[in-house]
Design a protein around this nucleic acid. Sequence first.
DNA 1: CTTCTAAATGATATGTTATATCATTGCACA
DNA 2: TGTGCAATGATATAACATATCATTTAGAAG
Lengths: 153, 153
Amino acid sequence: MGVQEVQACLDSAHQRCSESGLRLTQKREQILRLMLEAEAPLSPYEVVDLYNAQAEQNMPPNSAYRILDFLAEANLVHKLNSANKYIACSHIACSHPHSASQFLICSQCKTVKEVMMEPKLLKEIQKNVSSAGFKMRHPSVELECLCGECSES
Amino acid sequence: MGVQEVQACLDSAHQRCSESGLRLTQKREQILRLMLEAEAPLSPYEVVDLYNAQAEQNMPPNSAYRILDFLAEANLVHKLNSANKYIACSHIACSHPHSASQFLICSQCKTVKEVMMEPKLLKEIQKNVSSAGFKMRHPSVELECLCGECSES
DNA sequence: CTTCTAAATGATATGTTATATCATTGCACA
DNA sequence: TGTGCAATGATATAACATATCATTTAGAAG
Ligand SMILES: [Zn+2]
Ligand SMILES: [Zn+2]
Ligand SMILES: [Zn+2]
Ligand SMILES: [Zn+2]
């Protein structure tokens, strides 16, 4: 992701946060930028290492955990449960509201693609939930895949 | 799950394993029984504790990890990525083949319900994967929910 | 029924990840 | 310019996961 795209995401993130009364502090913004530039899933400890290398500071692990939690709560990053890592949302600068996503994860090269679920599909899933007497709060659809490149070789 | 149901699952598991050339050893069977009786997600360390309490033996953690891995590979238990726990498959004794499942997880009481995905739904998900140029290997659909009881109170 | 072999399990150590607790900083608001 | 609460830092430790090598066990071969 180019510098100007990253900046667009950060701007959009600031706007969205202030609209919802969330505080995108300097540290949180720094971590978000880092995630946007990484374009790959990062664990909290990997975030710490990257941050400390770049900023020549010393962020403690619990701060990384807290900040990633915040960003995930704000839908600016997503947690990939199958890897216990986080990845920047691919739709921060998009105008449409963020609905549920499918995450296509290449088991070989670890590339991740975030695809919005069509309303029809989401409704289909929702239907099964309701008929079991449950109420859905947050779906997590992670698909272990092979990406185009990796399935060729 | 009653004693006779557990036994039916174990019998079915033995049959399925021998058909696929897998070895459902004594330890593996003991752990599977334990999971069937628990009817709740258990972490490897919880399995160790339960086993050691019941059998008054001392299973090391790595054995629990290995055995749970084996059982998951054999589709006799499933790994819940969002909790890093395992739960016995609800369809061991069923005659139909095991396709992909949705896991409805109550965030409050941690009840889990495993619901088979209808082919139509699976195909819908698959479609999005293909159109992104990926090949699906193993879907993980975990839905953070409130169960019937918990959503009332 | 032995003996052999590979797979499974145990023992042990250690690396990694996650969290708990309290102190300190810094920003919003009066 | 204080005052209070949210955010972050410092530190310790708990919980989780894995690596390595030894030992046992189960199945195959003779
Ligand atoms: Zn997103
Ligand atoms: Zn790939
Ligand atoms: Zn199942
Ligand atoms: Zn519940």
